[in-house]
Computed example of a mutant assay.
Amino acid sequence: MRALYIAFSFLCGCFVSIYWGEYVVGNEAAIGIFVTVYTVLAGFLVAVIAILGDPSLLPSGSWRSAEGHRQEIEDRLIRHTWLFVLYLVTIGVIFVGALLSKAPEDVVSSCVKAIIAHIHLGLGVAAFILTLGMPKMLMDIQRKRVDAEIDRRRAEAGIKD
């Protein structure tokens, strides 16, 4: 299911890039918005990665119980690291496009400049769609933390489930 969501995200990015990419070519206001949004999202994602790596997310109990959840946490960290890389690639393509936008036509053709704008729009849309699942994931993590704390307090009070 996750692979379908990723494919859907990139297909949407391609669709938007093909049909509306011309509105980004040479549009410095849009480029500024993209850079701002993806820079903020990248910073936010660093905080999420730090939260995911917090050892307090491991369930209480034996080391075997914690070991059993290690792979789940590592998988989440890897997925979010790839999303972070996608943000950085998007920002990088925008940066290259901004640099080349001022190059003379005999050095960099307007076609190449347009292709770069289309690429950063497609990557940006795909990255944004992939980000939409993050609030639910964060809510699930916090819910698990609250449930673990309630379970710990019940155990301290001698209450069994």
Rank of each mutant, 00 (worst) to 15 (best):
E149T: 14
W82L: 12
S101D: 06
R76S: 12
L100H: 01
L11T: 10
F84C: 04
W82C: 09
E28I: 11
S60G: 13
Y38D: 02
Y19D: 11
G97H: 01
V108C: 05
E149H: 12
Y87Q: 01
F44A: 12
R145T: 03
L41D: 00
L11G: 06
A148L: 13
M139V: 09
E156A: 14
F15I: 15
I91M: 04
M134R: 04
L99D: 06
L57Y: 06
C14F: 13
K136W: 13
S9F: 01
F44D: 03
G158N: 08
Y5L: 15
I91G: 00
C12P: 06
V146D: 12
C14D: 07
I49A: 01
I141S: 04
G124M: 03
S62Q: 13
A98G: 06
D161Q: 14
K160G: 07
G32D: 15
D75T: 13
M134W: 02
H80L: 08
F8C: 10
Y19V: 15
S17E: 06
T39G: 14
T39Y: 05
V48I: 11
V146N: 10
K113S: 10
S110W: 12
Y38L: 08
Y5E: 11
D54G: 02
D106K: 09
V85W: 08
C14Y: 08
I116Q: 01
L130D: 00
W82E: 10
L100G: 02
